[in-house]
Write a protein that binds this DNA or RNA. Structure first.
Lengths: 254, 254
DNA sequence: ACTCGCTAATGGTCTGACCATTTAGTGAGA
DNA sequence: TCTCACTAAATGGTCAGACCATTAGCGAGT
């Protein structure tokens, strides 16, 4: 049910390797921090070529399950990791770019997740957990900040709240969603006419959300987060000069 | 910021290919349904080996972005797809198995997502959109149903609601989360003592949720969904005979 | 006891070959 | 002219074997 089957019923060579690793993980023989057998050894064990093993490793790497290091001894080899956020980010980003996930859908999910995070942060977060969020607020207070830097600090604020909430899945998804929307948001930011007005609203939204969380008012925090995300999205979609509508997410990386 | 850098500053060969594909997608030159250049051709274009291209393709495949077909002509080649749900499922399943995402965290996110889906389904879903959910309800009404079949119908019910809600990201995430919890849930099901009582509760929960949705009462639907998920989780975690606690997700696939 | 250098093991990469599958064209036969 | 079988080409799938850069560990020499 899980893996795509090729034309015939035979699993592909790299799927054999994936199935082997799956089984090891499921049966608890492989845990985070453990080393996979060396590529040549695993290839010999499973009677496939080393190329097949490497393709499987790439698959696992794309899922954030392993990370490879060159060199001999304990420092080298392919190790089970626990960094799913990068993998989630890349996956979401690609599918948003392909329009498999329409942005309005993403926004709704983002609201649901950040409402959860706001509530959890209100209940669980200690003061030092909120240090990152506080720092992001400081950065956004700078009147001379440019649009990209503001957006990055904005992202950091929301991700910091999600992290402070202590729910790993929620925070990783939140980070992934923000990352997936980075280019579309920057594109709309660029076409904003009343930037100063928008950024003032965003600033006060953030301050109010933060105050509600440190004030331990979960209901208000939840409500403010939802209102903030909705109004911000509306501001950069409806109020733009119309230039963003037909602008395909154009690459601006150096 | 996105891709892991190897030891030195040089990007790895397969990352060159990924970057190229990324750029094509971002600039709109590659859309869903389009063919990637043939592996040999792409290798020549980017001046890397075919093995490197294949590793990149495996990465993209793991992200649900492409699917490969053997053979010449339009029927063959590697094609951009839009099936992120399998990729999401596998990613979540692995990380749940590795305990990178603790199950209680997953449950909280699931509640947030399904509350959203319930609300959206109440507002958006036409009657025919709910046919799958209705069919799953029928299946679960069978008194002689075994635990695995019940769980599969249960999953189908929740996923059908999410699909009827019309939010692709929410439904894909819901499906992925259910899939990632399948083995842990089945394991706990197996150790349940008062199965008949639990299943009766689940049945009535589902019927009530469905009634609230067709009755267009979003608030009630949301509330019922959250209560249902919480009570079901509590029933299979707290009320089990203690056997599930130390049972590592043991494989039961054929 | 310390240092230097060698060796082995690792992943990273490339080359070149062969296979199975599929399409498209081509030619022989009706 | 049409039809069918066959061939050729293009595709991904797989493998074997080589070489490289990096790293850890060991051992000889000081």
């Amino acid at each position: 049910m899980l893996h795509a089957m090729p034309r015939s019923g035979q699993p592909q060579a790299f799927e054999l390797v994936l199935a082997w690793v799956d089984a090891q993980i499921l049966e608890g023989r492989l845990r985070v921090g453990d080393h996979l057998p060396a590529e040549r050894e695993l290839a010999a064990t499973l009677d496939v070529s080393r190329a097949a093993v490497r393709e499987a490793v790439r698959t696992l790497q794309a899922q954030g399950v392993v990370h490879s290091f060159v060199g001999a001894g304990p420092g080298g080899g392919t190790v089970l990791t626990s960094v799913p956020s990068r993998a989630l980010s890349r996956l979401l980003r690609l599918h948003v770019a392909l329009a498999n996930f329409p942005l309005p859908d993403v926004i709704e999910v983002r609201i649901a997740l950040e409402r959860l995070s706001a509530r959890l942060a209100t209940v669980n977060a200690l003061d030092e957990d909120l240090a990152d969020a506080r720092r992001a607020l400081e950065v956004m207070r700078d009147p001379s900040i440019d649009r990209q830097a503001f957006n990055d600090a904005d992202t950091e604020f929301h991700v910091a709240l999600a992290t402070a909430a202590g729910n790993r899945l929620a925070s990783d998804l939140t980070a992934a969603i923000r990352e997936s929307m980075r280019l579309p948001i920057l594109d709309r930011f660029r076409h904003l006419r009343d930037w100063d007005e928008v950024v003032a609203d965003l600033r006060s939204d953030h301050e109010a959300i933060f105050a509600a969380i440190v004030g331990r008012d979960a209901d208000v925090a939840e409500r403010l987060v939802e209102a903030h995300i909705r109004s911000a999205w509306q501001a950069i979609t409806l109020a733009d000069g119309g230039g963003a509508e037909h602008t395909r997410e154009c690459a601006d990386r150096p």
